Computed example of a mutant assay.
Amino acid sequence: MTQLRQRMSEDMEVRNLALNTQRSYLQQVSLFARHFGRSPDLLGREDIRTYQVYLTNEKQLSPGSIHIAIAALRFLYKVTLEKDWAFEDVLPLPKKPQTLPVVLSPEEVQRFLDCVADIKHHAILTTCYAAGLRISEAVHLTLTAIDSQRMVIRVAQGKGQKDRYVMLSPKLLATLRSYWKVLRPKAWLFPGDRPGQPITRHAVAHACAKARDLSGLSKPVTPHSLRHAFAVHLLETGADVRTIQLLLGHRSLATTAHYLRIATNKVCATSSPFELLPRPVPPPPPPAEPQYF
């Protein structure tokens, strides 16, 4: 490990950045240095600009992926190397397109879950939908996180390193109890193949893709799709946006409000003005021809 990498790693630890964020930032800076074949402290603004053009035009990365690379470089040069640059100009963030996720209907969710054969995979994917969890949160659930007395699930250190409680529905509790009676997990609610480790996100994503193929659904289905479905279905049954924000663990209400554009009972609640147009008046019938015979 180089001295610069060690210093950046320590800077992130001091600021208590999430472990996944630390790994991602170090990887992005490593790719940046490898691209030029030089240490980042020997590179300047023009090199950074050249690298951004490379990521956009040659690598053709999505704006979201470029955001991660820029966030890592901003941390390196602003915090670790203590540059006093105007970072909004030196490292501008590309504008993200405003896209809406494709959401499964309740019937499609049930059809998908019916195709998850493995009992552990079925339990964790059901939990993602029934509690609106991120996959990273679901895989790290422990047995003690399930509070059947208060009918809540404690999500420890979710995104942003924040704890929160989410709903534990009676049907989900029954599903988890049936699963526990079969596999008897000890510490992690959903243990992985490696002793003492939880199931990996990759394993859950693979099981999800397999069930989606078996279900014959035309819509894309990922573990995060189930979280989207949770939010939209709550909106469509009358839950308010603020409650959904707390359940999802969103920092900003504006993030949750995006689901208002998807919920059919919100989008289609107002009648089209076409329905208000007066009905066309039928033309009068032609005069009857006289009868001569």
Rank of each mutant, 00 (worst) to 15 (best):
Q3E: 09
E10G: 07
D11E: 12
D11K: 00
R15P: 03
Q27N: 13
S30G: 12
F36M: 06
P40R: 08
L43I: 14
G44V: 13
R45F: 06
D47W: 05
R49F: 05
Q52N: 03
K59A: 13
K59M: 14
Q60P: 01
G64T: 14
I66K: 00
R74P: 03
F75G: 05
Y77D: 04
D84T: 15
A86Q: 10
E88D: 15
E88V: 15
V90E: 03
P92I: 15
P94N: 07
P97I: 14
Q98Y: 12
P101C: 07
L104I: 14
E107L: 15
E107K: 12
E108M: 10
V116R: 02
E137H: 04
V139F: 04
T142C: 03
L143Y: 02
A145G: 11
A156N: 10
G158R: 03
V166Q: 06
V166D: 06
P170C: 10
K171Q: 13
R177W: 07
A203Q: 02
H206E: 10
A207R: 05
K210M: 11
V221L: 04
A229I: 13
A229Y: 06
H233K: 08
E236N: 15
E236Y: 04
D240W: 09
I244H: 01
Q245P: 03
L246N: 10
L247A: 02
L253F: 07
T256I: 09
R261L: 13
I262T: 06
S272Q: 05
E275R: 00
A288C: 08
